[in-house]
Design a protein around this nucleic acid. Structure first.
Lengths: 341, 341
DNA sequence: TTGAAAGCGCTAACAC
DNA sequence: GTGTTAGCGCTTTCAA
């Protein structure tokens, strides 16, 4: 497969020095005379020598690589995180090993095994939710730092959005616009992120003297189809004047169905999502949503891992990234108690 | 960093056999007595031994890894390709090394250097277009197979959509719906994919006795902003009744602006995109578009590379993936010459 | 079948 | 400053 590569020995011989000297030159692990250095560099260029990182890794026991495990790289949320992670790691000389678990716990485990065999220096993982993620879990390779992203795990390093705060932001926005009858399209109760968003939402509603009717909360997997269920919400008496969806995909499903049903957004009904995926702002009207700072999550997770890789001994830390409300066209102030129905 | 890992030697000693035997057992490179094998396996499990793939790679000169270089992993088009690639490679025991070039040629070059140092067995690359991709280019590491994705490169292995055919499909669809005055929002002239889509479009229009007016083609970078230029198109006299955008993002820009301007889609104006990114079907009305089979592209590229990695000597081959027209809500038959204006 | 040993490309300790 | 060499964990002759 790989032909006769040029090795450090070839370089040494051609430059008329010892391999140790070349190695020192390369790694600045010992000073090398100017002339010698130049001769070595010239030889390297001429021969097109590239140090074999695998061999180096075997020797120094560091591969300068980290595994990135996530449920689906083509999910825009994850891919944006992945992009930031890759950039941050690359700038520090680390190669990203992409592991797509396809949302499958078993596959995720196999990937983790693979990364262990590849002796990665660290791991960033967005666990597949396969029902809820256990709130805690055992270490695999002791000594290999792991940072959890978008999932809080007790006793581990993790970086997530402040989901509770996000829920509050959504509630405050709607409350301040004067909405009093509000429906919610919520993900599954077992999912921690959903729970927290809902908690925050309820809590803030409460502060405004509002409450969620039991039949005004619809649970289900966070997918387009859940959004379609908005139809049940608008049949309620009295009809909610605003709907909060626990993520944008769900909100988009709702948006579609509402438009199909002939509702005018936001005049007749307001809609708030969560995530701020790219397409939210492209809709018409564009979606008001709680924006998660995906780039910041990726960057923070990477830089936390990087610090651990330097050997810093940090206690497990849960970094919360603040979301912010992005008010766009899908929400509006409630017109004073709908006039003649 | 990595503590005292257990090596094949530990396993051998504990199992009371030679390291060679363990190796043979692991790789089935020689038959091993049943009893011995079982003893080895038990020891492996007990010790939690994981072969060091780096060390193995050093010895066998294959790393079981391939580099995937692309301009932006958070672009939904690329990330979908990436997903298929990762899956296909992983199922054949290869690890994907993710390299995001951020659309920067220099960075792309550095990534390629890095992959060379990491001794990847092969490379899949979606070149950054930084102005046009040269139609041909030199090999880097002789012996390391490279497959170009979404870009045709003379004399190299490549997998792309049949862009010309895609253009034809779009034109045929509009022509058959009775449209005669058609506008185009085209990417930059220097980009090969755009050229081909346009060629196909014009060619098919021609077959229907139609032509594109000079001022009915607007060029620019394929981004949302180009879509907004649809405003210039609808000011033309006579006004086009249909618009073809060379990709979906552009089409979505157009869709937004048209809605803002108060046009009804498709009653007053039809709109066709290209790519079929996820959000196309989520719009309202959903976008009619030429669907590129991204999954097929990823799979085919991966399986071509895999064959090359088996050592097959294939002549450079340009695999074309057929696109198909997905007629959704944004196009409609032209109502017989708009009645009273 | 099994075992011993050489060597993949590199770094780091040590000697000069 | 520079050169020599052991050895990282593994596979693969070759001999037993």
């Amino acid at each position: 497969m790989r032909g006769k590569v040029v090795t450090i020995r070839h370089v040494a011989r051609r430059a008329g020095v010892a391999v140790g000297t070349v190695s020192h030159y390369l790694n600045r692990s010992a000073p090398v005379a100017d002339g010698t250095g130049r001769r070595i560099q010239r030889t390297i260029d001429r021969l097109g020598y590239r140090p074999d990182l695998g061999a180096r890794g075997l020797r120094v026991r560091r591969t300068q690589s980290v595994g990135l495990v996530l449920p689906n790289i083509s999910n825009p949320f994850y891919s944006e995180v992945a992009r930031e992670v890759e950039h941050a790691l690359w700038e520090h000389g680390f190669q990203t090993l992409l592991c797509d678990s396809a949302g499958d716990r078993e596959r995720e485990r196999m990937h983790l095994d693979g990364l262990e065999s590849r002796r990665v220096d660290g791991i960033l993982i967005i666990r597949s939710s396969g029902r809820a993620v256990p709130r805690t879990e055992p270490d695999r390779q002791p000594g290999v730092p792991v940072v959890y992203v978008d999932r809080a795990v007790a006793g581990k390093h993790s970086v997530t959005s402040d989901n509770r705060m996000g829920g509050e932001l959504a509630a405050r926005h709607l409350a301040e616009l004067g909405h009093r009858r509000i429906g919610v399209l919520a993900g599954e109760k077992a999912v921690l992120n959903v729970q927290q968003r809902l908690q925050g939402f309820r809590h803030e509603l409460d502060r405004h003297g509002l409450a969620l009717a039991d039949d005004a909360v619809i649970n289900g997997p966070q997918a387009l189809e859940l959004g379609y269920e908005v139809e049940r919400l608008v049949r309620l008496q009295p009809r909610p004047t605003a709907v909060f969806a626990t993520n944008d995909i769900v909100a988009i499903g709702a948006w579609r169905r509402l438009l199909e049903l002939g509702f005018r957004i936001p005049q007749e009904i307001s809609l708030v999502g969560f995530d701020d995926v790219e397409m939210s702002r492209l809709l018409f009207p564009p979606l008001t949503t709680v924006s998660q700072d995906k780039a910041a999550m990726g960057r923070q997770a990477a830089s936390l891992l990087l610090r651990l890789l330097q050997g810093e001994e940090l206690p497990p830390e849960h970094i919360l990234i603040a979301p912010r409300l992005v008010a766009r066209g899908s929400t509006a102030a409630l017109e004073k108690e709908e006039a003649p129905s």
